[in-house]
């Protein structure tokens, strides 16, 4: 394999992940203990869902910054609906799950409509819709915390198979689903068509607007799943349940090797990216560094990743 720029970009994220694991394990062998690996996997799960959702959008060359608001709103609505339907997964409250997935899809579609119909750049359309989502979550809860104490639902967290909580396995299955959508459906291919060149995609008969709307709705579904996982992990929801997920998810996807310009990278890159970010977060604690360095370090990483993935011959200026 030749050492070209493309190859370096393709393999760099995986090598960085490997390097980090080796580094932390060398400093403190407890890093590789089964309990710590389970901790990393559990912490990664909600962020992984958000990252999968936003990957589809970044592949299209757009961006979505609404995840904090959508996750908070979906988490809060999920808890309220769950309690209203009996408060136990066995007693009909399972209906809250499909309902909240639809809700996420609807909110994502709405963001897409603001972006596509009103012709507002996606970063600003989604940022504004994120604020609307957080505001709605505050409105619904009145600033209170909603708790769920159903043992069957909390089994997502408490039921461990080979040491890993149930939701980690479900998340792995959803990664496969996302990979399938990306590689084996028309929609998935159309995301790449739009990301690779919108005008070309349009000229070859792709309904670009509909693809964009579908992308945002699909992302909304994954944010709703992230919300359900957050509730399962924490046992409660409030208007800040989604806090910090935006920075973590965008950083993960970009660090994993999905190019902001669209058309390059995909679901597997997002998985590697989320693992890199969470390994760093966990590893810093394990080797005794204060965790407040994390946001700054992620900021530096995301810049490096964007710079590396930018083909400077093709870009003349950035806004």
């Amino acid at each position: 394999m030749k050492l070209t720029r493309e190859n370096v970009i393709r393999w760099a994220p995986a090598l960085v992940l490997l390097g980090l694991v080796v580094l932390f394990a060398a400093i403190n062998p407890a890093f590789l203990s089964q309990r710590n690996l389970a901790r990393i996997a559990l912490a990664s799960t909600p962020a992984m869902m958000v990252a999968l959702g936003v990957t589809f959008i970044i592949v299209m060359g757009s961006i979505d910054l609404s995840m904090e608001g959508v996750v908070s709103l979906c988490a809060v609505l999920f808890c309220l609906l769950f309690l209203r339907l009996g408060g136990s997964l066995g007693a009909g409250a399972w209906l809250a799950i499909p309902a909240i997935l639809l809700c996420g899809a609807f909110f994502g579609w709405l963001t897409g409509m603001v972006h596509v119909r009103l012709q507002i750049p996606s970063f600003m359309a989604s940022l504004a819709m994120g604020f609307v989502g957080t505001g709605a979550a505050v409105l619904v809860t009145g600033g209170d915390i909603v708790r769920i104490e159903d043992d069957v639902f909390r089994a997502l967290l408490t039921w461990r198979i080979l040491g890993f909580p149930l939701m980690v396995y479900i998340a792995a299955a959803l990664v496969l689903l996302a990979w399938f959508i990306q590689n084996h459906t028309t929609l998935g291919r159309n995301f790449y068509a739009v990301g690779g060149g919108e005008e070309l995609a349009h000229a070859s008969g792709v309904n670009v607007r509909r693809v964009r709307l579908a992308g945002f709705a699909l992302a909304g579904v994954f944010y709703a799943i992230a919300a359900i996982f957050q509730v399962a992990r924490l046992g409660q929801a409030e208007s800040v349940t989604g806090a910090n997920l935006m920075f973590v998810a965008i950083t993960s996807v970009v660090v994993g090797g999905v190019a902001l310009w669209g058309g390059i990278g995909g679901v597997l890159n997002a998985v590697v990216g989320v693992l890199i970010v969470n390994v760093i977060g966990n590893g810093m604690v394990v080797i005794g560094l204060p965790n407040y360095l994390q946001d700054g370090l992620l900021g530096v990483l995301v810049i490096i990743a964007v710079v590396l993935s930018t083909d400077r011959r093709l870009v003349s200026f950035a806004k």
Binding site: I63, F123, L298, G299, I303, V306, T310, F317, A318, K319
Partner: peptide, 12 residues
């Protein structure tokens, strides 16, 4: 470095 401003300022 051609990093779009919404990302560069988010990182900073």
């Amino acid at each position: 470095l051609f990093v779009p401003s919404f990302i560069s300022t988010l990182a900073v």
